[in-house]
Design a protein around this nucleic acid. Structure first.
Lengths: 134, 134
DNA sequence: ATTTTTATTTAAAATCATTCTAATCTACTT
DNA sequence: AAGTAGATTAGAATGATTTTAAATAAAAAT
């Protein structure tokens, strides 16, 4: 993607094409699927000789997410939960009051998974069904 | 569960039955499914007039988990990930190198979910398939 | 029972990811 | 070119969790 195409992309999403946003967008939207954290992106930025603050990386990742350019992958809120139900099962996560409700394992069927990478083994499957008011 | 049954339970799992562990175990293992965080458990402890430190609550939750008495519900590591793939899909999480791999939405079928609580709406479904070496 | 050993608890400090603040700077408008 | 609204930044603040190092309690040995 050229610099001018990146500029257009940002404008189309209501974001001013600043030097920092252009730099991050061209790293992120190169056509390949990418999974980044703020830290991993900071490394890439550093490696390409660009200088910008970590706060800007966080701001920009959230703005891109709000604009629909990125998707946030987040577990259940930002704290660790412990469950007295040790059997395999899943959860509704009610985001309006931050409560969890059990979903029996039998409610979820997983089929045709892509091949597990060589040397790796499936250790567990966690399904989170997010609920909101409405 | 009586205090002596709680003591037995702890011993059976190789844990010394200390005052603090007995108190936490009797709150947690009352036969009802429970989802707790360290903070929520601290509140319950406080409400029952018991005094013990937050560090002990964290230690104990992890020890109970290691002993198989609790299950930890955790998203993908403890950082927020952002994904350039904004279509509905899921993830392998390779815990050995902390990498993510996409799983197409079509690989996962969800059926017979429990009824969504009144006034709530499903906002998204996130499936994490955890991988380890071996 | 008393001592000794080893595990546990604790308060306080440290850590780590993330957000906030308030000052500076930059893109867009006039 | 000047003004204004929005963006960036360094550094402080926050919040969850872990670590540290000293004090305490449980189990084992005498």
């Amino acid at each position: 993607m050229t610099a001018s195409q990146t500029t257009d992309l940002l404008r189309q999403h209501g974001l001013r094409p600043t030097r920092q946003r252009i730099a991050l967008a061209s790293l992120l939207f190169d056509g390949h699927p990418r999974h980044v954290t703020a830290e991993s992106l900071k490394e890439q930025v550093k490696a390409s000789g660009i200088k910008l603050s970590l706060a800007t990386i966080y701001n920009t990742l959230h703005q891109f997410t709000a604009a629909g350019l990125l998707k946030e992958i987040k577990g259940i809120s930002d704290v660790t939960w412990f469950d007295t139900n040790i059997n395999s099962h899943h959860h509704f996560w009610d985001t309006s009051n931050n409560h969890l409700i059990d979903i029996p394992a039998s409610s979820i069927t997983i089929s045709n998974l892509p091949k597990t990478p060589a040397g790796k083994v499936i250790n567990g499957v966690e399904v989170i069904v997010r609920l909101t008011d409405g």
